[in-house]
């Protein structure tokens, strides 16, 4: 059969459907995921196929969703739960941090929590307050959790399958701005994109740009813009889609920065204390003397995500990335 061209929503839906067919222990629940198919339609038609026994609406309580998933996971099921929006992850933070992330350690391996929390993430869709948050720092700062953040339909399917099959809890962040922005051929057959492996989207020798989630598209746009100017068109940029926030793919990052000697990190989240800071620290620890110029971070300012009128000013954009690349190349 020919491989379909899918957007990210469809690719995730396909992964869920195929994994539920393959593995009867997979369950889906969360707010509005049943008949409604989720507010973004990611779980569309799954209840019809797998019945309410396996795909069901939960009462409106995120702590309850996470806590029940932990119990089910310890008891041999593979819950894939949905948080309706990034901002409401915080209602389940307690359960995830205190229990999902620690059960293996606390029980010295006797109990494990193989669950997935799907989190529509980030801004750019002109939504209400708490609907445009970047929570990767909160989750990545929790030992015991893995955090992945695909930016393409292909990776979305492969990473989700890897996440569901992973023996530990995985936070699966979905760039909601890109949900329907790109279509890509997605294999119908089974495949995984391994957790903890970044993707070098474009090879280059002058400068490394690292991004994840929706920022990958912004970085790509910046690279297109660079081509329009004869000087900057000379820059050989290596673009890395991080794909997994935690555990971070140090090998790929180090190999690239060792080669280029220059680094720009792009994160949608507020600047301070984010994954960008972690990457910069890793590079400083390991490769400080290979750097030809200071590391540069492009990130949101350290403020509350503003209401929608100001989103255009707040979100990191291609122009800022382009400027950062130019600055680093010039210094």
């Amino acid at each position: 059969m020919e491989n379909p061209k899918l957007n990210i929503v469809e690719a995730i839906n396909l992964a869920l459907k195929q994994e539920m067919e393959r593995d009867p222990s997979v369950l889906i629940f969360g707010e509005d995921v049943g008949k409604d198919g989720g507010v973004f339609r990611v779980t569309d038609k799954l209840q019809a196929q797998f019945t309410e026994d396996r795909v069901f609406d939960s009462p409106l309580g995120e702590s309850g969703i996470a806590g029940m998933a932990i119990g089910l996971a310890m008891y041999g099921f593979k819950p894939v739960v949905e948080v309706q929006f990034d901002g409401f992850y915080h209602q389940m933070l307690d359960q995830m941090l205190q229990h999902a992330a620690r059960m293996r350690n606390r029980s010295r391996g006797r109990y494990t929590v193989p669950m997935v929390v799907r989190v529509p993430s980030g801004g750019g869709i002109k939504a209400l307050e708490h609907h445009s948050e970047s929570i990767e720092t909160f989750v990545a700062h929790t030992p015991g959790l893995k955090v992945v953040y695909p930016s393409t339909p292909y990776d979305a399917k492969g990473l989700l399958l890897a996440a569901i099959r992973d023996p530990d809890p995985v936070i699966f962040m979905e760039p909601k701005r890109l949900y329907r922005a790109i279509k890509q051929e997605v294999p119908l057959e089974d495949y995984i994109v391994p957790i903890g492996v970044a993707n070098v989207l474009q090879e280059g020798t002058d400068i490394t740009v690292i991004a994840w989630g929706a920022m990958v598209r912004e970085a790509q746009a910046a690279m297109e813009n660079l081509k329009t100017n004869p000087t900057t068109a000379q820059y050989s940029v290596e673009l890395i889609d991080l794909r997994t926030i935690s555990p971070i793919d140090q090998a790929t990052i180090f190999a690239s920065v060792e080669k280029t000697g220059r680094l720009v990190i792009v994160q949608e989240a507020v600047k301070s204390f984010g994954p960008g800071a972690e990457i910069a620290a890793l590079v400083a620890e390991k490769l400080l003397y290979s750097l030809k110029s200071p590391i540069h971070r492009v990130a949101a300012p350290d403020i509350t995500v503003p209401y929608l009128q100001a989103e255009q000013w707040y979100l990191p954009n291609a122009q800022q990335i382009q400027n950062a690349i130019t600055t680093v190349m010039a210094s």
């Binding site: 707010e31 509005d32 049943g34 409604d36 609406d57 009462p59």
Partner: peptide, 11 residues
């Protein structure tokens, strides 16, 4: 209703 979830599913 709570979006698509009827009262009977809440409690």
């Amino acid at each position: 209703w709570a979006i698509s979830v009827p009262r009977s599913y809440q409690t």
